[in-house]
Lab assay of single mutants.
Amino acid sequence: TYYTVKSGDTLNKIAAQYGVSVANLRSWSGISGDLIFVGQKLIVKKG
């Protein structure tokens, strides 16, 4: 599943919304830090 980052989103908010960890969200999407951008597509795998 892809999630497109919206204004005001954080990795914590997105992870909580999908019931996954921030570490997994980073790993799946190839992100090393906490910086995400509006319009960026993140990969989300539901448990």
Rank of each mutant, 00 (worst) to 15 (best):
V20K: 01
V22G: 03
W28Q: 06
I36C: 05
N24V: 12
Y18S: 05
Y2H: 10
V38W: 04
T1Q: 14
G33D: 11
K41L: 14
S27K: 14
T4L: 09
K13N: 11
I43F: 10
N12C: 14
N24R: 08
S7I: 15
T4Y: 13
I31S: 03
L11H: 02
Y2V: 14
Y18W: 12
G33V: 07
S21N: 07
V38P: 14
I36M: 05
V38C: 08
L25D: 01
K45I: 11
K6W: 03
L35K: 13
S7H: 14
T4N: 06
D34N: 11
Y3F: 03
L35A: 13
K45A: 13
F37N: 08
L25G: 00
S27N: 12
S29D: 03
I14H: 00
G30R: 07
K46T: 14
G33W: 05
S21T: 14
G30T: 06
Q40M: 11
G19S: 09
V44I: 15
G30V: 06
S21Y: 03
F37T: 12
L35E: 15
A15T: 02
N12G: 13
D34E: 10
G33K: 06
T10Q: 04
R26S: 08
W28P: 02
V38I: 11
T1M: 14
R26W: 04
A16M: 12
S7P: 15
D34C: 11
G19M: 08
K13E: 11
W28T: 06
A23G: 09
S29M: 05
G33C: 09
S27P: 01
G33M: 07
G8V: 02
Q17N: 10
S21A: 07
I43D: 04
V38M: 07
N24C: 15
S7N: 11
R26C: 13
S21R: 04
G39Q: 02
S29T: 08
V22N: 03
A16S: 11
I36A: 03
F37I: 10
Q40V: 05
T10S: 09
T10E: 05
V5K: 00
A15S: 08
K45N: 12
A15L: 03
N24W: 08
V22A: 08
L25R: 00
G47A: 13
A23D: 15
L35S: 13
G33P: 03
L25K: 00
G33S: 11
I43P: 05
V5A: 05
K46H: 13
K13M: 12
L11T: 02
G30M: 08
D9L: 01
G33E: 09
K46L: 15
Q40N: 04
G8H: 05
G8L: 04
L35I: 14
W28A: 07
D34G: 08
K41M: 12
L11A: 02
K45W: 12
S27C: 13
T10V: 04
A15G: 06
K46E: 13
K45G: 13
Q40T: 06
K6T: 09
V20F: 03
T4F: 12
S32V: 15
I31H: 04
S29F: 05
Y2S: 10
N24E: 15
V22P: 08
Y2L: 10
A16G: 09
I43C: 13
A15D: 00
I36L: 12
L42H: 01
R26Q: 13
K45T: 11
S21H: 05
I43E: 07
F37R: 09
F37E: 11
V5G: 01
D9E: 04
R26F: 05
V5M: 02
S21G: 05
Q40P: 02
V5S: 02
N12Q: 15
I14Q: 00
V20W: 03
V5E: 01
Y2Q: 09
Y3H: 13
Q17V: 11
Q17A: 13
L42C: 05
G47D: 14
K41D: 07
I43M: 12
L11V: 06
S29W: 05
S27W: 10
S21W: 03
N24S: 11
L42V: 09
A16Q: 13
